[in-house]
Design a protein around this nucleic acid. Structure first.
Lengths: 138, 138
DNA sequence: GCGGATGGTTATTGACAATAACATTATGCG
DNA sequence: CGCATAATGTTATTGTCAATAACCATCCGC
C-alpha cells in the first residue's frame, strides 16, 4: 500500500528526516538540549567572534528565531553575549557551555555512527554528498 | 565555518529535508494543498476501502492528527467519509478530489525530477535506498 | 457476554520555521 | 563629513507538522 510513496525521493527524505530527528531529539533531551540548540553549541565553539546573525546565517536560522534560542541558552548558563559594538554581539561559550558542548558532540557523533550503520555499505558514502546538493545553493 | 556541520549526516539530512519541504510546500500551495494533505490524496486513490486509521498507519500520522487533516480535505470537497460499520469510516475521493489528486501527482512528480536532477549522477540512485533504511523499520 | 483492542474525536502542547514591523547603529558613497 | 542605506537585534504573531492524554463508542475473540 505504501509502495506508491516509498520510492518517491521527496517522501523518503521527509520520513527519514522525521525519524532521524525524533531519535536525535530523544538523545539530546538527556542533556536538556533541543536539536537547534545543540547545533548552535556545536557551531559556536569554533569562532569566538561569531555574532548572533552570523550563526543564524550559517545555520539558516532567521534572526528573529535566534533570539529565543540564544535567550534559552543564556538562561541555562551555556552562552554569554558580549557586545562587539553598539549593534552586534558576540556569542561565547561559558565553561558550562563548553562542557555541554562536549556532551552534545559525543551524543551526535554516536548518533551519526548509528545512523550510517543502518545504511547498506554500498549506499553509505553517497548519502551526504547527495544531501549536500539539496540545500547548498537552492 | 559551516564545515563542522556540513559533513554530519544528521545535519545534512535535516537541512536537505527542510529545503525540500519548503520548495514542495510552495509548489503545492498553488493548488491549495499542504504537504501532508497531498500525501493523503496520493495515497487514497489506490484503495477505496482505506479507513482513516489505515491511512494514518501507512503515512505514520497519528490518529488524532488525521482528524483535522481529513476535516480540511472534506471541507474542501476533495474527500468523502463513508461509514464502513459503526466504528470505522472509509475515505473516498470525490470527483473534485480525483482532479486535485492528478494535479498533486503532476506537481510532485515534476518536483522529484527536479530534486534528483540536482544530485550528481553517481550519487543519484543511492539516495532513496539509503533513506529507506532510516525509517522503514526503526 | 464480556473484556480488551481498535477507531474516531477533542484538546493541548512542543519544536521549528516564516513574516512583518520597529528601533538602533554601522557603513559607504557622494 | 553627512546622510541614505544596509545590517543587527528584538517583539509579536502565525503556520505546519507532530506527540500526548483522555474519552466514548464499537468491534472482536474467547
Amino acid at each position: 500500500m505504501s509502495d506508491l510513496l516509498r520510492h518517491r525521493p521527496g517522501y523518503a527524505l521527509r520520513r527519514a528526516a522525521n525519524a532521524m530527528m525524533a531519535d536525535l531529539a530523544g538523545r539530546l533531551a538527556l542533556i536538556d538540549l533541543r536539536i537547534a540548540e545543540a547545533s548552535v553549541l556545536l557551531l559556536v565553539a569554533d569562532r569566538a567572534d561569531a555574532t548572533a546573525s552570523d550563526i543564524g546565517r550559517t545555520l539558516d536560522i532567521q534572526r528573529a528565531n535566534m533570539v529565543p534560542l540564544l535567550t534559552r541558552l543564556e538562561a541555562a548558563g551555556l552562552i554569554e553575549r558580549r557586545p562587539l559594538d553598539g549593534k552586534s554581539q558576540a556569542v561565547l561559550l561559558t565553561p558550562s557551555g563548553r562542557a555541554r558542548r562536549a556532551e552534545a558532540d559525543a551524543i551526535t557523533t554516536a548518533f551519526e555512527a548509528d545512523l550510517l550503520a543502518r545504511i547498506a555499505p554500498e549506499h553509505r558514502d553517497h548519502l551526504v554528498p547527495a544531501l549536500d546538493r539539496l540545500w547548498s545553493h537552492p
